[in-house]
Design a binder for these strands. Sequence first.
DNA 1: TCTGGGGTCCTCGTGCGG
DNA 2: TCTGCCGCACGAGGACCC
Length: 355
Amino acid sequence: MARLIAHLDLDAFYATVELQRRPELRGLPVVVSGSGPRAVVTTASYEARKFGVGSAMPTSRALRLCPQAILVPPDFDAYRAVSAKVMALVRGTVDLVEVLGLDEAYLDLSGLHSPKAAMRRLVTEINQQTGMNASVGIGPNKLVAKVASDAEKPRGFCVLTREQACRRFAGAPPSLVPGIGAKTAEKLGKLGISTLQQLAATPDEVLAGAFGGRQGPWLRAAARFEGSSHVEPVRIAVSESRETTFDVDITAHAELEVELQKLAEKLCEGLAKHGRTGRTIAIKVRLDDWTTVTRARTVGEATNALDVVFGVARELLREYAPERPVRLLGVRMAGFPGEPEEEPEERGDQLALPL
DNA sequence: TCTGGGGTCCTCGTGCGG
DNA sequence: TCTGCCGCACGAGGACCC
């Protein structure tokens, strides 16, 4: 059966929550960001975006672009609360929902009687009950739905068939497709491929030669807007981590171990809260020259005990013994036991993101 | 321009047991 | 007993996403 998928995306979500809590900031360039010297922008209101401010940009640069920007520290508890309300409304309309992060979800509309009308009602309901604005894309698979929801933001409502998506975005850069980032786009550029139309017309063998047997064919299929329509309601976490970037790089190993212990404590608290134990303990170290090193060790029994986690993490750090100043330190737990095997059936026509 | 935090998934290399 | 092959698990790095 042909499926119909929607992608629902809340517009400038964190910034909108902040504007709702502080209406006096409406119409002003609001930037949600930490305040440290190495902070980056979490999200920016549309007023701030007019100045070129965008997500993941160093806050120092955002302030140069828009000196009058109003910095607001992120409050994830508040965002989670609003997100929960929105997702409850979504689940009131559609049974099969795949939530991604706090501000977006895929919805399987296949069983709905009049799906477009239902989605318009849902958007209105979300706005009336939470004050959030949403953009919606609808298509035969998740890729078309996602790109369609991005196409007319904010408050967009865009319905496309696969063929319409191919025509509409033929001249768009490959990076329009989620999963094609800066590195892949650059590599494609070197092959003379700068549009989705060109990518779609490139033989699999050429792409496989440059990108490998999996990613190559995936790239061409994505450029043709062929993608999965499998909405997965439950996502099982495969790892949990805590990391921190220091305001000032740390050189002394003793000081690093103090920071490592704090991170291990936070991680173990989180693991206990989620009822998780794992076998693979890893550290992540980013040096002042931005090189990032990870070291991992698998222990015999799954655990979330602080003495084990910190003990192994400290051993890994001592063995690595960074020779340059450290700007970031992290601890990660993976290898959670008892995860059910994914059933391979019914996935033949579907394409999972390789990245 | 000077780059967060928390994740997922892929690729490749290596060691090991059958 | 040695060697090669294969599959698997693990470890490391990297690209990407929100």
